[in-house]
Nucleic acid binder design. Structure first.
Length: 819
DNA sequence: TATGGCTGCCTTTTT
DNA sequence: GGCAGCCATA
């Protein structure tokens, strides 16, 4: 991503002071400089959107290195995604060259995996532990819920999973939670049992789930202070980005790392454990805690649902007394128009410190608003506008489309394909979520970590080998009787008491696993060649019969599955190229921790499509924010959650502030949700934007007006008057739109205001129309049907009106009649 | 044991 | 409109 700070300062204010980091300060404003150069135990950088925080962070690291205040190995920088980590590393490298080698720049999860791999043996795991993604843990929890017949008490796998996750993020375990829970409630007791079983199963499988990676590292540090000391001595400068999105476990981890080493470790014999408090830090710098820099913006906190605790940032000064706070408010990204919209929106959140982004680049283009008849109509607008911008010289790669939920990407994708707009979906149905990829990875896990029973069970009958429930149970029973693992039981096919055909199948599977193991995990002393993972995977997929089964299948989807597996093989090759010493476990770790935002091959001339959450931290010349509707943004489910609507508003704010030059806000009047067409209402957030900032190409009133008062949702009169009908006007499409936000409007009023559904929804489902028919529309008058597209509830009539010109109408709801 | 058809639920957002 | 899980059947 380009550096938002253009180093233009020629006559710098501190010329030739001879600081070794002089050049790093070029072009920075005063607070940015301070954020780079401040030295002290704790620093909080409150960085508004687009205020150049990444630049400040990288320069701060570069400055520490350049001035020799730190060795690279003493720096630990935590980012939110692997992609952000990669970019930060690259930028630091640009500033200081190869000196950057040896820094830890990674996500919380990657850093914890590195620590856990080294220390796993301290507490009952082995180096070769594997990582359960949410699908894996859901499968395990599902089994446990079933075993405990817990569904009878209203415990669903999903609810159990999310509760366990929340508890782990609070550093609770089954035992500690059980002490405080109301154990007379059978559902609670059951939950605690399942939680405990789940944890034991993970341990037995030598596996951690996502939340464990953090929580168990904290546990490790607390239980084994001498282990923690190793890392406390090593990391002298800890920097955390996106601090507003850290949860309690992550907070605790940072807290553990920044404590002074206890000094009890053997290699510090002179301290005797007593010098911690009286040793002067200068004389013995290793005894003080690491310096901590955190960067964040509470207005961009959008992960509360996953346990992020905004208090981590709002109470930073309390947690780290004497902490320095630097505020970055000048924005280097967006036009004033975009910032004014953003400021106005976020100003409606009441529990925040007031902070106003500003810029000196000028007002720029107005925000473009558009209301489609349907989500397809909306998508068509986006596609058309993308093409217009492209012709005006904006790169496809400089444009992005955001939406609240992944499912919204479908309509956009359809239209983009039809309109031949190159696009790329970030996230969505992930490559690694596909069944065949998970199967292939399960084969690899079965080799890397045979203790992982879930993985072995997964591949047991893939491809079909005639091994069903009965045989699976027989294997498990045999393993239990003999006191061996499920995996090892496979080596004793003849002893299982199953038929000869099935014995043979099991023996074959075992042989394939053994062969692959020999390739990927050679006996000690030998080193696996870089091609080991690729070769092993080919053996597993080939000799197991997995690929053959797909190839002879009649299901046309299986062809795509073979291609996906080919791609996975290609991924292993790529991995080997980038990591010549990379082991099977390294590969599996990387795969487990990649995220949606990490899709590295961005650029290459396509428009990016992604959820608002994925968009955080990115920026584009032109941004399309779609589906700005009630129940979608803010999402319906958020209404019932404490702080939900405010978090949704922050999400909207994050979306707005991604735009550099152009912002488009769009919505649809109807939206198909699970097959049914439902009427959508404009989002309450729209009216929080001063309406003179928006140029409506087609306003909600244009689309929905049927001469009456029923549908003017945005203009509905408040109970008690206020302002109505016309008046503040100002946009050329009349006054349908958005009165200026009224100060101190009570919250209850807002919800009443925006949510009103039009009096009645017309249903023309059974109206038969064909090209050539004449129709009458309540607003547009008479016209002739050019053609009808779509089916069922989504039939669209393309009509040429005698006076109003061509329009597309959703037949189901349009106020029309056949003549 | 494999398959196919049915039903019901679903959709927030992610490391 | 899609997927997962359940059940009935071969």
């Amino acid at each position: 991503m380009p550096d938002p700070i253009t180093p233009v300062v020629v006559g710098s204010s501190t010329p030739g002071t001879g600081r070794p980091d002089e050049d790093l300060l070029a072009g920075l404003n005063a607070p940015q400089r301070e954020a780079v150069t401040y030295r002290g135990a704790a620093l909080l950088i409150v960085a508004g959107a687009g205020s150049g925080k990444t630049s400040v962070l990288t320069r701060r690291i570069a400055s520490l290195l350049r001035t020799r205040e730190a060795w690279p190995s003493q720096i630990l920088a935590i980012t939110f995604t692997n992609k952000a980590a990669g970019e930060m590393r690259e930028r630091v490298q640009q500033l200081v060259g190869d000196t950057a080698q040896g820094m830890w720049i990674s996500t919380f999860h990657s850093a914890c995996v590195r620590i856990l791999r080294r220390e796993a043996e301290q507490f009952g795991f082995t180096k070769s532990f594997t990582i359960y993604d949410s699908g894996d843990s859901r499968a395990l929890i599902k089994r446990l819920v079933k075993e405990h017949e817990a569904d009878a008490f209203g415990l669903t796998p999903a609810s159990v999973q999310s509760r366990i996750s929340k508890l782990k993020n609070e550093l609770a375990d089954a035992e500690s939670y059980g002490r405080s829970a109301n154990m007379s409630d059978p559902a609670e007791r059951l939950f605690v049992e399942i939680f405990g079983d789940y944890q034991r199963a993970l341990q037995k499988a030598n596996a951690f789930d996502f939340d464990d990676l953090i929580a168990q590292t904290v546990y490790l540090f607390r239980a084994f202070p001498h282990v923690a000391d190793v890392y406390r001595r090593r990391f002298r400068h800890i920097l955390v980005d996106e601090y507003q999105d850290t949860n309690h476990a992550q907070y605790a981890l940072i807290h553990e790392l920044t404590r002074p080493p206890s000094g009890a470790a053997a290699d510090r014999f002179e301290s005797g454990g007593m010098m911690i408090f009286d040793a002067p830090p200068a004389a013995s710098p290793e005894l003080s805690g690491a310096s901590l820099t955190v960067v964040g913006d509470s207005d961009q906190s959008i992960y509360a649902f996953r346990g992020a605790d905004i208090r981590n940032i709002s109470e930073f000064e309390r947690d780290y007394p004497g902490a320095k706070v630097v505020l970055l408010e000048q924005n280097y990204r967006s036009t004033q128009t975009i910032l004014s919209a953003a400021n106005a929106v976020i100003g409606n959140n009441f529990d925040r410190k007031d902070k106003k982004l500003w810029t000196d680049v000028g007002a720029g283009e107005k925000i473009v608003g558009f209301t489609g008849y349907s989500q397809h109509d909306e998508a068509q607008f986006v596609a058309d506008e993308v093409e217009t911008l492209r012709k005006a010289g904006v790169d496809y790669a400089g444009m992005a489309v955001f939406y609240r939920t992944n499912s919204q990407s479908r309509a956009l994708e359809e239209i983009f394909i039809r309109s031949a707009v190159p696009y790329k979906i970030m996230g969505g149905t992930k490559f690694y979520d596909r069944a065949e990829i998970k199967d292939a990875l399960a084969y690899l896990v079965a080799v890397a970590n045979p203790a992982d029973e879930l993985a072995v069970r997964r591949i047991l009958n893939k491809p079909r080998r005639g091994i069903g429930d009965v045989t699976e149970t027989a294997i498990a029973r045999f393993a239990a009787e003999e006191g061996i693992s499920f995996r090892d039981a496979l080596a004793n096919a003849s002893a299982l008491g199953v038929g000869p055909k099935i014995q043979k199948a099991i023996a074959h599977l075992d042989a394939v696993l053994v062969e692959a193991t020999a390739i990927m995990l050679p006996a000690s002393g030998e080193v696996a060649p870089p091609t080991a993972v690729t070769d092993g995977l080919n053996v597993l997929l080939g000799k197991s019969g997995y690929l053959d089964a797909l190839r002879i299948s009649k299901d046309p989807q299986d062809e795509a599955r073979v291609e996906n597996l080919d791609e996975l093989v290609a991924v292993t090759r790529e991995f080997a190229r980038n990591n010549p010493d990379g082991t099977l476990l390294d590969f599996l770790t990387e795969v487990a921790l990649v995220s949606d935002a990490d899709d590295l091959d961005d650029a290459t001339g396509s428009v990016s499509l992604m959820t608002l959450h994925t968009a955080k931290g990115l920026e584009y010349d032109a941004v399309f924010l779609t589906g700005v509707e009630e129940d979608l943004l803010p999402h319906r489910i958020s209404a019932g959650e404490p702080g939900g609507p405010q978090e949704e508003r922050r999400l909207f704010y994050v979306g707005i502030t991604r735009a550099r030059k152009r912002l488009h806000l769009s919505l649809a009047m109807t939206r198909a949700q699970f097959g049914e067409v439902t009427v959508a209402m404009p989002s309450r957030f729209l009216q929080e934007i001063p309406h003179d900032l928006i140029d409506w190409r087609q306003s909600p009133g244009d689309v929905n007006s049927r001469g009456g008062m029923q549908s003017r949702a945005l203009n509905a009169r408040r109970p008690g008057g206020g302002f109505g009908g016309s008046g503040s006007g100002g946009n050329r499409y009349g006054d349908e739109l958005v009165p200026l936000p009224q100060r101190d409007r009570p919250a209850s009023d807002i919800s009443k205001f925006a949510n009103r559904i039009p009096a009645k929804v017309r249903d023309n489902s059974d109206l038969e129309l064909a090209a050539g028919d004449r129709i009458r529309h309540e607003d547009f008058g008479e016209g002739r049907v050019d053609m009808v597209t779509g089916e069922g509830a989504k039939r669209i009539a393309h009509v040429r009106f005698d006076s109003a010109g061509p329009k597309k109408l959703l037949i189901k709801i349009a106020p029309i009649s056949k003549l």
